[in-house]
Design a protein around this nucleic acid. Structure first.
Lengths: 166, 166
DNA sequence: GGGGCATTACTCGGATAATGCCTGTCCGAGTCCACTAGG
DNA sequence: CCTAGTGGACTCGGACAGGCATTATCCGAGTAATGCCCC
């Protein structure tokens, strides 16, 4: 799985803690974890395309949350960064198998529908997606605030101080 | 996800249909789906290392199932081909964040334990793995035989004829 | 005719290249602020 | 003093290389069958 998912999740949480009134630049978000700024910018662009965060140019520009944290699920972030394709791609290998009867004597089944292996794998992946879709980033935020109460304040202060610090 | 997983699953089913008395060569298995023989051989080697199939060299050599189909789960095959590492690797990004207090005033928590994002993603992946581990290839075989009863016979005949056909 | 043996063909197994995607970087378009000059 | 204009600095956004994992391939070690020669 792409590493950008992790960065995106952390950045979204940081944006939430920074508050919707401040727009945070990609460079600042990257500096917090010592990440390559331009590359993090690329990932944030994916989040913008997905409508999770909004962006603005210029000196006062940067990124800010476009939705409430309660309305962003882990699945949304994964889909935004990784793309909507499913992990297990059935290449239709079964169709290349030697056929008993070349002539068709009924409706030709869809490749994905016919392949039971694909079905089973798809089912497992669906469970995974459902689990991700059922967990919002608000849940994650609440857990963090319960386990490490100091983190949100620290993050908020650090990003607020970004403007004044050299 | 690696494409080899799909090849491995189909090949295992074909080995089961060919019967444990016949050893099928990688070339023959590959010819059934028109796959690159040497590369499929590589994937099958992974299955051998995992103990799912056994191999033998020589003219009568080839691959055959090492376990019953009831004792092989989808998880086994995925783990054998993809490796045991989890898909979402937490790079410990959180540790690089600026700390409020450099001095430690308690037991330092494990990175994976402390990062709630990692926790949530791990939980979802665990559900996925559990689903895969709960489904055996015998289930898949039964479904195939129910949906397409002709496939097993065709496969068995084709692999049995392998020896005689040019 | 029967048995032992060298040959041969066929298989896996691991070492070796080629390809594509993820990672990482750079520069241009747009935007807002700040300074300046004029009224 | 107030206002309009202009320069500058900062931001995102998409276009451009590099590195690494997956994909694909090749050749050698090993093995069992086969044909041949000798007894």
């Amino acid at each position: 799985m792409s590493e950008g998912v992790e960065w995106a999740l952390h950045s979204i949480l940081n944006l939430a803690w920074a508050g919707p009134e401040h727009a945070v630049s990609a460079a600042r978000l990257a500096a917090y974890y010592d990440l390559p700024p331009a590359y993090l910018n690329k990932q944030l662009q994916a989040l913008v395309r997905a409508g999770l965060v909004s962006s603005g140019s210029g000196p006062r520009g940067g990124f800010r949350l476009a939705r409430r944290l309660e309305d962003i699920t882990l699945m949304d972030v994964v889909a935004a960064v990784e793309g909507p394709e499913e992990a297990f791609r059935c290449a239709g290998i079964r169709l290349r198998a030697p056929r008993g009867r070349p002539h068709e004597d009924g409706p030709v089944p869809e490749p994905a529908e016919d392949c039971q292996i694909h079905q089973a794998m798809r089912e497992a992946e669906l469970v995974w997606r459902r689990e991700l879709a059922g967990r919002t980033l608000a849940d994650v935020r609440d857990r963090v605030e319960r386990v490490s109460p100091g983190v949100p304040r620290r993050a908020r202060r650090w990003f607020a101080a970004a403007r004044t610090t050299s």
